[in-house]
Design a protein around this nucleic acid. Structure first.
Lengths: 355, 355
DNA sequence: TCTTGTCTTGTTACCGATAACATGCATGAT
DNA sequence: ATCATGCATGTTATCGGTAACAAGACAAGA
């Protein structure tokens, strides 16, 4: 808070060093363009004055802010926090600063954020998801900067995309549970009627249900209940609802590891043995899933990698050379990690129903 | 990516509406200064052109960016994510945008971040913690904008502060375990020798140890092991180390709920009953602590509130009126939440040692 | 010697807004 | 009718850099 009369400007540095401001600018942006001797004189002046460049002015002049806007559903979900972290790391090297906004899973809020961010003139925009309001899509299309949709691999991206197929992830979960011999299979996820929506989660459940239908055992046993985002609590309560509706359920896919852990803890409380009485698959491979007992079988997605790849893509794209680059869609994939909460259907399991 | 010839500027809007740019500027910044009729003409022109103001130019001219820099240890810790979210919410109303950086618990990285952020000319700076490199402290002092240190209540803040006393939180944990009748009491936290340091956690452990020493039972049984930040894994491994050194331990305080849950899960795996064989207290009141069985006794801190209060403080401070405001230190406090992982010391416990 | 190219530095003209001050006009009090 | 007052709008001068082009000095090649 120590107040000088005025912050030193490049002008002040240039006078002290006896050069033009352009030379000072070069020392900071492209040191090798300036002779050894001049450079050290300028650096000494910078040091002496405690000069800090003003990047606002620089951005206005150069028409480049080195800002990248990232719009995510929330920060309080490790997956998205990981993505943000990966993105930051990849961009940091190229001196980009992230402008993070979060929507709490509302596309109206996403639109509001885009409107608020565009006047800051970001050099690129990253948004989670492919479902946007009409106005938001228009804004993104006309923004005249690269746009990357992440956490999905859309058939028709606005521009670029980095993610994986949530639908296929859901299908993989269903196929796996079928392969274990289960037939009474259910899924739990949050409600799809509120203002907040987890479209990626809905996609996973859709893929899951599709496989069950294809297997001829009906895909209808999907409990959608409680607010987005799914939480530990959500899982715990969803299990209650599920057991009311289908006491003989043998296997459950939860839309998120958080829900899954909630389900697991509720099973502990109710004396339902996992995996003997119930097989359980989560999604996301959260840390906690590895620590619970038994450890959670889940679908692993490398959230950090999504951020990192996105950052790398942008660094390439924003490098002047790559002016007319083709839209890219990067699929980082997913994998099913078998751990302790799933087991083959066993005849003895029937005893619970016969009881 | 649709490229117009050139983005419309305020100049274009003013021409179309037949007014000066100043009038357009007023319509956007202070609508009531402009007559009803002119205003609607200007708004129509803005609409027609799809004009988006350029805040870079605006910032340069007004010498106000409406950026607030927030430097946190990490985003992948729910507590700090909550703080960031609270901060964002409180600032959003006043149209501030957060520039988030994270240090991975390294003060050298903090210094680097401060250097990188200052040229963006934030209107205020928020940093987690009170331990900074000497250069970083200098930079903050001379930044000529409000600085808020959060997550602690320092005796000598650089400027403002919003947080609580970690030392007292540690003392509270120790007093509580003593009050239950425990005497073989230990604490676990991450190492203090690496480059990454959790100074707030260290403070808590210091307070904890101090109480034990005052009670005459030695404060030395503090296991500091593993990298910062403490994780589930950390807790699991720390318990192993602890049991090697003190098989008769009755009660454990973990610097973080993440460690605590790790300890708890490791107890499950080893067949140690909690709370019958071991009382366990965590810190942070993470969601997961409420879901594990038994639910975790912990010290609750309202991380979201820290962010919110910080945001509110800044909005007040940055409101021109409050030019020469006094440095403020806001203590949001903490509270001990008794749940299932703690129980009074019972004579039968001794059997484990006698065995 | 003249040409050409490289290296280094400077000059000029913005980038797109806003602060501060100025102006013109209608209103109502005197 | 006169003038202070307030409202609506315009004018001028930056804010602090950088792009693009220009120019001078010197070395190497013809």
């Amino acid at each position: 808070m120590t107040s000088m009369l005025r912050k030193p400007t490049m002008r002040d540095v240039s006078r002290l060093a006896g050069v033009s401001t352009m030379t000072v600018s070069r020392v900071l942006a492209d040191p090798e363009l300036v002779s050894e001797e001049t450079r050290s004189r300028v650096l000494a002046a910078i040091e002496q004055l405690g000069y800090l460049p003003n990047r606002i002015a620089g951005s206005l002049s150069s028409q480049r802010t080195n800002f990248v806007t990232a719009i995510l559903p929330t920060l309080t979900n490790v997956n998205f926090a990981d993505t943000a972290q990966g993105l930051t790391e990849a961009l940091r090297a190229a001196d980009y600063q992230l402008l993070i906004g979060y929507t709490t899973y509302r596309i109206e809020e996403e639109e509001r954020l885009i409107r608020a961010m565009l006047p800051r003139r970001p050099d690129a925009i990253v948004v989670a998801g492919t479902v946007h309001t009409k106005a938001a899509s228009q804004l993104l299309l006309r923004a005249d900067v690269p746009v990357v949709e992440i956490w999905e691999t859309p058939a028709h991206p606005i521009n670029h995309a980095v993610g994986f197929s949530n639908y296929e992830a859901g299908r993989a979960a269903a196929r796996y549970l079928l392969s274990l011999g289960h037939r009474h299979i259910a899924a739990v996820g949050p409600s799809t009627t509120g203002e907040a929506r987890d479209f990626r989660g809905e996609d996973r459940l859709a893929g899951f249900a599709a496989v069950l239908r294809e297997a001829g055992i009906g895909g209808g046993l999907v409990v959608q209940h409680g607010d987005v985002p799914a939480s530990f609590d959500h899982g715990a309560r969803a299990l209650g609802v599920l057991l009311d509706r289908a006491p003989d359920v043998e296997a459950v896919f939860a839309v998120s590891d958080l829900s899954a852990v909630g389900v697991l803890m509720e099973c502990h409380r109710r004396g339902i043995r996992v995996p003997q009485d119930l097989s359980l698959v989560g999604f996301g491979d959260f840390d906690i899933g590895r620590q619970v007992v038994p450890a959670l079988t889940t679908i692993r997605v490398d959230a950090h990698l999504i951020g990192q790849r996105t950052g790398e893509l942008l660094v390439t794209l924003l490098d002047e050379a790559a002016a007319g680059a083709e839209p890219a869609v990067v699929d980082v994939g997913f994998s099913l990690v078998e751990r302790g909460t799933t087991a083959p259907a066993a005849p003895r399991r029937r005893s619970r129903r016969d009881h």
